[in-house]
Design a protein around this nucleic acid. Sequence first.
DNA 1: GAAACAAATGAATACATGTTCATAGGTTGT
DNA 2: ACAACCTATGAACATGTATTCATTTGTTTC
Lengths: 108, 108
Amino acid sequence: MLTADQTNGLAEMFRLLGEPNRLSIVASCLDGPLSVGEITSRLGLSQSLVSHHLRLLRAVRLLKAGRRGKQIFYSIPDCHVREMLTNMIEHLAEPHEQDEDLTETGAI
Amino acid sequence: MLTADQTNGLAEMFRLLGEPNRLSIVASCLDGPLSVGEITSRLGLSQSLVSHHLRLLRAVRLLKAGRRGKQIFYSIPDCHVREMLTNMIEHLAEPHEQDEDLTETGAI
DNA sequence: GAAACAAATGAATACATGTTCATAGGTTGT
DNA sequence: ACAACCTATGAACATGTATTCATTTGTTTC
């Protein structure tokens, strides 16, 4: 199985992706580096809110930051994160199976 | 990009996996169907807590339930979920890259 | 150096959520 | 039908967290 540390680390990552605005921020960076201002205007969120979220995402390396002049650009740090996200998004599009009836005998 | 509905749906899934106990519950079902009692004893959680979590996991189809006699067994519903989880777990083991310095010029 | 711009931070708050306790529902055997 | 077992549910509470507002830090340009 998983050690407690692994579980906590993985859960922390999931937890951060589990907030729609934060997920949108990360998803918007899939196409390439974006400045805080660009993220803010694209998503229609307040600068402060975006910045708070970015700090959390940076902390768990879901995003990395780099300065270019006055602005700071955020991007996906490595291919693992990128693959993970694209995989999840692909799964979204795939067909769902039927509901299972709890009373059905062979339901296991 | 992603529609608002897709974002919310994906975030909901991530959110549920973002709680260590809940993630452990799902992970423990990767090896095969488990009854509520087995999950409870394996993870050392209260029966009530496990049941509450199971209800949420069922609701988003991260787990499915099936009755066998007095007990109810929970399992991974389809290969999508299973692949997703195993992929994430594999990513856990892979090496991390170095920290980026914010002041570095070519950091983008 | 001052003004202007971009991003980060801290405090405060309203809201969501994980957990526990007690109780109810449903199933099997006697 | 009753008792024993397994699971689900509801209320209550304590904790965590997303968001806003105001302020600050850092960078560029004049």
